[in-house]
Structure formats: structure tokens, C-alpha cells
Design a protein around this nucleic acid. Structure first.
Length: 123
DNA sequence: GGTGTGACCAGCT
DNA sequence: AAGCTGGCCACAC
């Protein structure tokens, strides 16, 4: 396949989706954290773009658990309704004030840290 | 095959 | 202090 339906096969997006899918319930992460876990911090934009493709994905991508480094719901407008993202987060016990996650540090789930620890234990 | 863009991040002015 | 610009990298036209 030169182009066309890239969907998911060795794509950067697949990695992003995988990490996002691994986000535990009631936890959130940032684009840069995912980007840093997959490749480099500079790819943070790609992560956001991958989320855009997440809507195409048949699987459930908890994109609402992915926010920017400030804990701000930057991509809320991409959920069709800007209230959906906050609604989903609040449903998981995450309080949001002014589109910003309160206690962001507490609910922050860093794949670089969490995933690597689990991976280390397995080894 | 080049250009533009995109839900970011961090550094510079 | 706050705003802006650059960087980064992959996808779409």
C-alpha cells in the first residue's frame, strides 16, 4: 500500500493509541509524555494529531484522558461537543475547573514512569 | 514530491 | 511577566 488507507500498521498512530488505551481509569496524561515515551518530546504535535485520527479508530480511544501539559482540556472542541471531554473526566472522578484539571499532578499518569516500572517488574 | 498543517512544548524577546 | 516563534515529525492534498 503506497498510500490510501493507512489505518493501522506500523504507524506512529498505533503506538499513540496503544498508550492512550493503557491509561488507567481516573487518570490522565499529556501529549508530551506520550510523545516522549514513543519517540521524542518534539513529536507532541503528532500525538495530538493521532488523537484526531482516533475518531476513525474502531477501538475506544479515551482521548478525553489526554490533555496538554498544563492539564488544560485543549482538545475538548474535537469531541463534537466541548462539554463531552469534561463530562467524561468528571465521570471518572476527575474534577475540572475552568477547563483545567484540578489535582492534575495526582491524576497524572506518566507512561515513561508507570509503564517502565511495570515493564521492569516483568523483567 | 513539495507544501501545509496540527488537540504541543520549551525557550527566547 | 507575558507573548511569540521555532522545532519537531508524520499525514493529507
Amino acid at each position: 500500500m503506497t498510500t490510501g488507507t493507512k489505518q493501522n500498521s506500523g504507524s506512529f498512530f498505533e503506538n499513540v493509541f496503544a498508550v492512550v488505551r493503557l491509561i488507567p481509569y481516573g487518570r490522565v496524561t499529556s501529549y508530551g509524555a506520550i510523545a516522549g515515551y514513543i519517540a521524542t518530546r518534539g513529536s507532541a504535535r503528532m500525538v495530538g494529531w493521532a488523537m484526531n485520527a482516533a475518531h476513525m479508530q474502531v477501538t475506544d480511544i479515551p482521548a478525553h484522558r489526554v490533555v496538554n501539559r498544563n492539564g488544560l482540556l485543549t482538545g475538548k472542541h474535537h469531541f463534537g461537543n466541548p462539554a463531552i471531554m469534561q463530562q467524561l473526566l468528571e465521570n471518572e472522578g476527575i474534577e475540572i475547573k475552568n477547563d483545567q484539571i484540578t489535582r492534575f499532578a495526582e491524576v497524572f499518569w506518566d507512561p515513561n514512569k508507570e509503564l517502565k516500572i511495570e515493564n521492569y517488574q516483568e523483567l
